[in-house]
């Protein structure tokens, strides 16, 4: 199986999608001639031409709005917003237009577009280029939210997102664009709405997505040397949420950590913890723990950015804390 970076895997997905269906087009800033600021759209302009690979002015509202308009009449746009931090400039188009036209039209219209947005910190880019804002989208009925952690899922989920008739918010962690891994050739599709157990374990469940999956896998390795077996669930999709996968895991391990890079308050981890407590309370031997960034904008100086990124270093502590907790209730076998 070939190895490639996440950016290359996304590039392949574009190619496959655009070859298969002439209604698919790419639109965004610097994606054509320049090949994209993360190199995701390199070569597409040469292969598909400037009608289907469209460079735009700095006009996020028009990028999203025109993609919605085109999608409403049958096109399948893949739009790129280079930094999710910019999404405020087109927020109305996303939540009030893209998310709601299915509902408003009584089911007659749909908006089959993919909004690719780069998120995440770790490169010292500072407050307006480092945020993780998926929780804004998960709170908007009508949008699906996808966040791959590995190149094979990036390819597979982008293909699934293009095929999906609903608007999909597709988050790519900018730190992971150069992450290299095996990616199946050809039309490899990963279903939206299904998480994946990346590592099995009996002692606790770590639910995570995007870059945090890599943190969790590293921590699981370290914890294993101490005799603690962590089960790592890579959610891959936040909405619709794979609740069964989480429930099944927690019912076996009885302990839950949710780890995400985004800020703690109202992060999507709060939703997962709430649901697990609602549905799986009897299985829990300890209160769930959320490991997340502090509620701060992302500073750009490297030592300060590390404070924002402390979930990475706090995760192992959380594992220790969770497995050190004694619970008074008799364990049911």
């Amino acid at each position: 199986m070939p190895e490639m970076t996440m950016a290359q895997a996304l590039n392949e997905a574009h190619r496959i999608a655009m070859q298969a269906d002439s209604r698919v087009f790419a639109i965004g800033e610097d994606i054509g001639d320049y090949g994209g600021i993360y190199r995701v759209t390199v070569g597409l302009l040469d292969e598909f031409g400037k009608d289907r690979v469209r460079d735009t002015p700095i006009s996020e509202a028009a990028i999203v709005g025109s993609s919605v308009g085109a999608a409403l009449v049958g096109c399948r746009p893949i739009l790129e917003i280079g930094f999710v931090d910019f999404v405020g400039t087109c927020w109305d188009q996303i939540i009030n237009q893209a998310a709601k036209y299915r509902y408003l039209s009584g089911g007659k219209a749909s908006v089959p577009l993919v909004m690719r947005m780069a998120c995440g910190a770790g490169l010292g880019y500072g407050v307006h280029h480092s945020q993780s804002l998926e929780a804004w989208f998960t709170h908007t009925p009508g949008i699906k939210v996808v966040m791959p952690a590995f190149p094979d899922d990036a390819k597979g989920l982008l293909l699934a997102a293009v095929d999906d008739d609903d608007p999909v918010a597709f988050f790519e962690h900018k730190f992971l664009y150069t992450y290299k891994d095996a990616v199946p050739e050809g039309r490899h599709v990963v279903p939206i709405g299904k998480g994946k157990i990346r590592r099995e374990g009996r002692d606790l469940t770590i639910v995570c997505w995007s870059r945090a999956v890599h943190w969790a896998l590293d921590v699981a390795e370290k914890a294993a040397t101490e005799g603690i077996e962590c089960e790592v669930i890579d959610l891959r999709t936040l909405v619709p949420l794979d609740e069964d996968l989480i429930h099944n895991s927690v019912s076996r391990t009885n302990r839950l950590i949710v780890c995400h890079e985004a800020c703690r308050t109202s992060g999507f981890g709060a939703e997962i913890v709430s649901r697990v407590v609602e549905t799986s309370f009897d299985f829990l031997e300890a209160p769930p723990i959320r490991v997340a960034a502090p509620d701060i904008p992302v500073p750009n100086s490297i030592p300060l950015e590390k404070v924002y990124l402390r979930p990475e270093s706090e995760l192992l502590d959380a594992v220790h804390k969770l497995t050190g907790v004694r619970f008074h209730k008799l364990k049911q076998h």
Partner: peptide, 24 residues
Amino acid sequence: VLTGTSMVGSVIPLASGKALANKL
């Protein structure tokens, strides 16, 4: 007749998008 919106002006980019679809 294409859908409207409460946000006055927000459909202008959508209209351009439909015209883009026609062009393609």
